[in-house]
Design a binder for these strands. Structure first.
Lengths: 237, 237
DNA sequence: GCGCGCCAGTTTGTATACAATTTACCACCC
DNA sequence: GGGTGGTAAATTGTATACAAACTGGCGCGC
């Protein structure tokens, strides 16, 4: 059942400079070193990575498709600033995908995987205690990705990976400073339930977990989209 | 001041010639006028749409991200030929997303929407009777997209739209000539359950519906992936 | 005759040049 | 003085040019 697709003899190590640039930019955004709203001028990236604007544009287009970057016509690219609506949608979608995947997870889960997941939880816990909010967000995302990947569905895993990366931006924009991410105990609880083979309970817990995250967001209003307000056209007294 | 032009950020109205070309190519692939495996040389597309290869590549890259086109380094693009594994993954993922969306659909569904869905079913039914397999596949996809869109989750709807387009290629490649798509009665049954407010029954029926589709695929005739066969080194006797 | 290697033709990958649009700044007018 | 309009600088959009890689065919040697 494993869908391994041997691309070319040189597997995934290569991919060219554009792939290297993609990884760099993706990591920088996922790890919030480039916060939401940061402008990404093409010539700067071009000079930074030593490639032509052609490749820069290619990478930016790709990341725009993934929702990590916003490209406005003739106005360049910037790190995406997810709206409140988008935040709700992303987490609702993640809940469906991740709960669905969890519900069909073949049991028992290999011990090695359980151990790796526990290790991620431990690191996330450390980050929380150290007040390293950014690291906690990233590690929480890694946990969810790894968990989703257990099902062996590469298509689903890819989607979850993309949604998790967007979630990172969402938490940076709308997350409250305290208890930004999932409470560590919740992640640990899911693992424990999985280890005991109580899959259905794990699914229920996961759903509640997403509920907590969504509720934890603070919906501080966005930059007040003047256009849509005016076009909304409520009758002027 | 010429600010009267509704230039919304996520412009769906216009985006230039590249957007027009995207729509054209997407429709051609979705409607199977360009069957899986069809090569898509850049200069041909360039001449066809009257744009430079730059824009052609931009569109092809985008469609590759969506899984509709495969781009192999230095070897150009072609309409994707989904593998059997990919087919299973796509339908499993769709089941999770679409069942999840259905389970949370606010009831009652507006009458106009129900009517539009019934109309799609009717057209699909016609196509089936007329032996127009290609139209039936497309209309079936339209039905699923419209149903998913009812929830109002744009992020989820976009994912479903992409997966449905890929499903079109999957059915073209692996679908059996008869009963290619969903049996029409199944779609109608889902609408009826929805109209009566029996959401849970609808979800269950939808899940079974995907089960039927997956089972209806014929898995013979794998593309003879010589590389992985040789490298896999199973050497079965 | 069969196989190997070389060469030409074709196709893609990347960079650069030029056009179009936006942005910012400053002079100008009310 | 504040707002308006225009012009210049900067940035992006598109096209083209050139380099690299692959494909297919032909000739040569075994």
């Amino acid at each position: 059942m494993s869908a391994q697709k041997p691309d070319l003899p040189t597997a995934d190590s290569d991919g060219g400079r554009d792939e290297a640039m993609y990884r760099g930019l993706h990591a920088a955004i996922y790890e919030l070193r480039l916060p939401p709203g940061t402008r990404l001028p093409e010539d700067v990236l071009s000079n930074t990575y030593g490639v032509s604007r052609t490749l820069v544009r290619k990478v930016l287009q790709r990341m725009a498709m993934e929702g990590l970057v916003e490209i406005r016509r003739n106005r360049g690219a910037q790190v995406a600033e997810p709206s409140a609506d988008e935040a709700r949608e992303v987490f609702a979608t993640r809940r469906m995908l991740e709960c669905g995947a969890l519900a069909e997870l073949p049991l028992p889960v290999p011990t090695a995987e359980l151990q790796a997941l526990r290790e991620l939880v431990r690191q996330e816990d450390d980050a929380q205690l150290n007040g390293d909010r950014v690291a906690a967000i990233r590690l929480s995302g890694d946990f969810h990705i790894r968990l989703a990947a257990l099902g062996g569905n590469a298509t689903l895993t890819k989607l979850v990976r993309e949604l998790v990366a967007r979630s990172s931006l969402i938490l940076a924009t709308h997350g409250s400073p305290i208890s930004v991410t999932c409470r560590h105990s919740e992640h640990e609880q899911i693992i424990d339930l999985l280890a005991r083979g109580e899959r259905q309970a794990g699914v229920a817990w996961m759903a509640e977990h997403f509920e907590h995250i969504t509720r934890g967001l603070r919906w501080r209003e966005q930059p007040l989209d003047l256009f849509s307000v005016l076009k909304g056209g409520d009758t002027p007294t």
